[in-house]
Simulated scan of single mutants.
Amino acid sequence: MTGAGAPDQRPTDCHDLRVAIVAASWHATVMDGLIGGAQRACRDYQVEAPHLVRVPGTFELPVVADALAAQGYDAVVALGVVIRGGTPHFEYVCSAATDGLTRVALDHQTAIGFGVLTCDSEEQALDRAGLTRSREDKGYDAAAAALTTAQTLRSVRRGYD
């Protein structure tokens, strides 16, 4: 079970952050759960109106996250799911999404919440999607990480540690 050792993190006031959520469209039930979790985290962290953008799939997340970061968003939460199949497609898409989102974070010095599920089965994805019967809420976790990182970046830029 993943999630063991997660930090005990309490929501803080992030009302002054500009936040975008970019979400893939494949696997609608899983994606609805991930988006719902990210939106719950935004509410808990007092982000009033996160901007939601949908893209076709996980492969398209980095280019849209890049455009959002270039527009000055303080945090971008990237949500997607890739389920292993019988071809190398899984490895290519997972690698491209991970590398691309990392590049966006570094190029723009923008907090990127990595909410891309890389699962062997749909059951694993559903278990991490933040749905009623899920054991984990990776959409929430990705948004919380992005918001906390955005606050840390703001402090670093102001000369605080």
Results as ranks from 00 to 15, higher is better:
residue 17 L to P: 08
residue 19 V to A: 11
residue 20 A to E: 11
residue 24 A to I: 09
residue 24 A to C: 06
residue 26 W to H: 03
residue 26 W to T: 01
residue 27 H to Q: 05
residue 27 H to S: 03
residue 28 A to R: 04
residue 28 A to P: 08
residue 29 T to C: 00
residue 31 M to S: 05
residue 32 D to P: 00
residue 33 G to F: 07
residue 33 G to T: 08
residue 34 L to T: 04
residue 34 L to R: 01
residue 35 I to F: 02
residue 36 G to W: 03
residue 36 G to E: 05
residue 36 G to Y: 04
residue 37 G to I: 08
residue 38 A to C: 10
residue 39 Q to C: 08
residue 39 Q to A: 13
residue 40 R to P: 00
residue 40 R to M: 10
residue 41 A to C: 15
residue 42 C to M: 11
residue 42 C to V: 13
residue 43 R to M: 08
residue 44 D to H: 10
residue 47 V to F: 02
residue 47 V to M: 04
residue 47 V to A: 01
residue 50 P to M: 10
residue 51 H to Y: 13
residue 51 H to Q: 13
residue 53 V to K: 07
residue 54 R to S: 08
residue 54 R to P: 00
residue 56 P to F: 05
residue 57 G to E: 01
residue 58 T to W: 00
residue 58 T to S: 15
residue 61 L to R: 00
residue 62 P to D: 09
residue 64 V to L: 08
residue 65 A to V: 13
residue 66 D to S: 14
residue 66 D to A: 14
residue 67 A to C: 02
residue 68 L to I: 05
residue 71 Q to C: 04
residue 71 Q to I: 02
residue 72 G to L: 08
residue 73 Y to M: 12
residue 74 D to Q: 13
residue 75 A to M: 09
residue 75 A to S: 07
residue 75 A to I: 09
residue 76 V to T: 05
residue 78 A to I: 10
residue 79 L to T: 04
residue 80 G to M: 07
residue 82 V to K: 05
residue 82 V to C: 13
residue 84 R to Q: 01
residue 84 R to M: 02
residue 85 G to F: 09
residue 87 T to D: 09
residue 88 P to L: 11
residue 88 P to R: 11
residue 88 P to N: 09
residue 88 P to S: 12
residue 89 H to T: 04
residue 89 H to M: 01
residue 89 H to C: 06
residue 90 F to G: 09
residue 92 Y to P: 00
residue 92 Y to G: 07
residue 93 V to K: 03
residue 93 V to E: 01
residue 93 V to Q: 01
residue 96 A to T: 12
residue 97 A to W: 07
residue 98 T to A: 15
residue 99 D to C: 09
residue 99 D to H: 11
residue 101 L to G: 11
residue 101 L to Y: 12
residue 102 T to C: 14
residue 103 R to M: 13
residue 103 R to Q: 13
residue 104 V to H: 11
residue 104 V to Y: 08
residue 106 L to K: 08
residue 106 L to I: 13
residue 106 L to V: 14
residue 107 D to Q: 15
residue 108 H to Q: 14
residue 109 Q to S: 14
residue 110 T to C: 15
residue 112 I to M: 10
residue 114 F to M: 15
residue 116 V to R: 05
residue 118 T to I: 02
residue 119 C to P: 06
residue 119 C to K: 09
residue 120 D to S: 13
residue 121 S to K: 03
residue 121 S to R: 06
residue 121 S to V: 02
residue 123 E to M: 10
residue 123 E to I: 12
residue 124 Q to Y: 02
residue 124 Q to M: 10
residue 125 A to R: 07
residue 125 A to H: 00
residue 125 A to Y: 00
